[in-house]
Write a protein that binds this DNA or RNA. Structure first.
Lengths: 334, 334
DNA sequence: ATGAAAGCGCTAACAC
DNA sequence: GTGTTAGCGCTTTCAT
């Protein structure tokens, strides 16, 4: 493999000139520039990025901490991250953490080890040890989607409480009063905020809310399926179910139909995220659309703003969501 | 940030000893070892991986070229890759190529630029220029899932032809004779092999095959939806549809139901991949299960075998598939 | 078992 | 506009 010295010899110039020709061609005379280009060509020279990174103290990599890439929504977010990162000359180091904190901490250590310049964390957990915060330096992290209340870095999310309230209001407006909720993980801020929004709507409508209409889940179809089963065993069957992910909604619908109930005839089902499959489900899902790709792109932009110290980064960004009404929700007994 | 020299000073040893303590503790005396550990601790020392990589000439990163991460099947494969890579101390550089060759070539260039030690390519395309093949050195690449016939590296796939044949035979055994196929991209070896298997089955049953039962697609639900629409416009409606992905099958079912046809009553629909949603679709999908996570894990193992020259790597690995019969297929007119 | 020292390939002062 | 040179932080001979 050829290096910068070989190229310099070939071109009859110094290594500094070769370096300059590559980094800032404009400060090199056209003649030299051309000779160097030739030499690069004939030598088949590719700069050793490990050396470049080492010397310039920047890895140009972003570490992405994702609970699970198997989740359709996260896959879209990562698509957005990848696209934006690539456009700005950064690589994406993927870290599937399965929500395990020790793994998240380990991966965040890639910043201390200079493997990555910064971290995009898609879960509400700060993987940096307290002593990683160099006083004066901002933490090289952006926390997106599921966000820590007191995140020590910029955050990016939708207004989950408002979204959940809107969705619940939609259900109430259709005439539902017994509305169950299939939730995400119990301790997630996502779940907490969405339950709050759900309660907001019930309360505003004068409907008493009851904890036993709340079913825990984990965003997977299986969880929705199981929760729907539990829900059907109740004496007073809910007439509507608000699922915290489209995946769970699809699972729930499957279970409901299997038990002989029509959706939305007997039970209305609403989802969250607006994944691709939401439109192709039977019935097509009423859901809250989140700007998944934009989450990724914005997170990258914000992180690079931090890394390259391009002025101040907005600390708390809230992206718009949208209620998408399809056919999985209808008046009760309709 | 502290470096190895500071630690050496603190411990009162040479940098070489610190390095040794970290890399091969066993060749350092227990006493020194302990002093160094102390020093590392008090200094809060983390080796600069950029320097380590630079010096040792290995990035310990694997580049993964994936057409689109938004595809559920690929997302699972990547999950497997990530898991195996992490277990063996490698990082995963994600490259969403959208099937664009110039991007694939650019990303494969990360190997020449020492950003990555090797490449896992999930599409049938060789992104390495001819002169990248150092004579004598094997190409640091594994080609998995969609595989080049004459791939210049080990490949990993299922027997797509056999799988398609099995699935088609299942349809024929149910009594279908007019079986349409909604395909992947026209020029993909995946499509070619599966069409071949489909034809094998028809031929063996003495059913004439006709090209106009073949509908092009791109693996997305939308493509399945559209193709199903086209298919319904025919004079003689097929009684069964073989879709080259579960995503397309779900899209197709959506379109069929929308047009008032029952699945499988009026039209049987089969998919491919056995994604999570396949079980929760209505009706649950008959499909071919592929070992997605295993694809990822095996690809990583094979690639690392190449990189670390651990003996010979099996050049053509074929993983098992399985026909999963659910409710989306039934006898015609049933 | 440990230390001294060379150098990986590159960038960035600093000189001319 | 170009060359000289000093490292970046680490690993790894080669001595001792």
């Amino acid at each position: 493999m050829s290096n910068i010295r070989k190229v310099a010899e070939l071109a009859g110039v110094s290594v500094a000139t070769v370096s300059r020709t590559l980094k800032s061609p404009d400060i090199v005379s056209p003649a030299t520039r051309e000779r160097v280009r030739q030499a690069v060509e004939t030598a088949g020279y590719r700069p050793n990025q490990m050396a470049v990174q080492f010397r310039s103290r920047r890895s140009n990599n972003l570490a992405v901490l994702v609970p699970t890439i198997a989740n359709t929504f996260f896959a879209r977010v990562i698509g957005g991250i990848q696209q934006a990162a690539q456009a700005q000359g950064y690589g994406v180091l993927l870290c599937n953490t399965l929500g395990r904190e020790e793994l998240e901490i380990q991966y965040a250590g890639m910043v201390a080890g200079r493997q990555a310049d910064g971290v995009i964390q898609l879960r509400a957990f700060n993987p940096f040890p307290a002593d990683a915060v160099e006083p004066g330096r901002p933490l090289p992290m952006v926390n997106a989607c599921e966000v820590l209340d007191d995140a020590p870095c910029p955050t990016l999310r939708i207004d989950n409480r408002a979204a959940a309230r809107t969705l619940t209001e939609h259900l109430i407006a259709l005439g539902h009063r017994r509305i169950a909720m299939i939730q995400g993980p119990r301790r997630s801020p996502l779940t907490r905020d969405r339950v709050a929004g759900y309660r907001d709507a019930l309360e505003a409508a004068g409907i008493p809310s009851s904890d036993d209409l709340l079913y825990p889940g984990d965003f997977t179809p299986r969880a929705g399926y199981d929760a729907a089963g539990a829900l059907l065993a109740r004496d007073l069957r809910p007439t509507a179910v608000f699922c915290e992910s489209d995946e769970m909604a699809i699972g729930a619908i499957s279970r409901l139909k299997q038990a002989g109930f029509a959706v939305p005839g007997d039970v209305s089902v609403a989802g969250f995220d607006d994944i691709d499959f939401a439109s192709y489900s039977d019935p097509p899902l009423t859901t809250i659309a989140q700007p998944a790709e934009e989450f990724g792109q914005r997170a990258v932009d914000m992180l690079i703003d931090i890394l390259e110290a391009r002025g101040d980064v907005e600390p708390r960004v809230v992206l718009p969501h949208e209620l998408v009404i399809r056919d999985s929700t209808a008046p009760p007994g309709g």
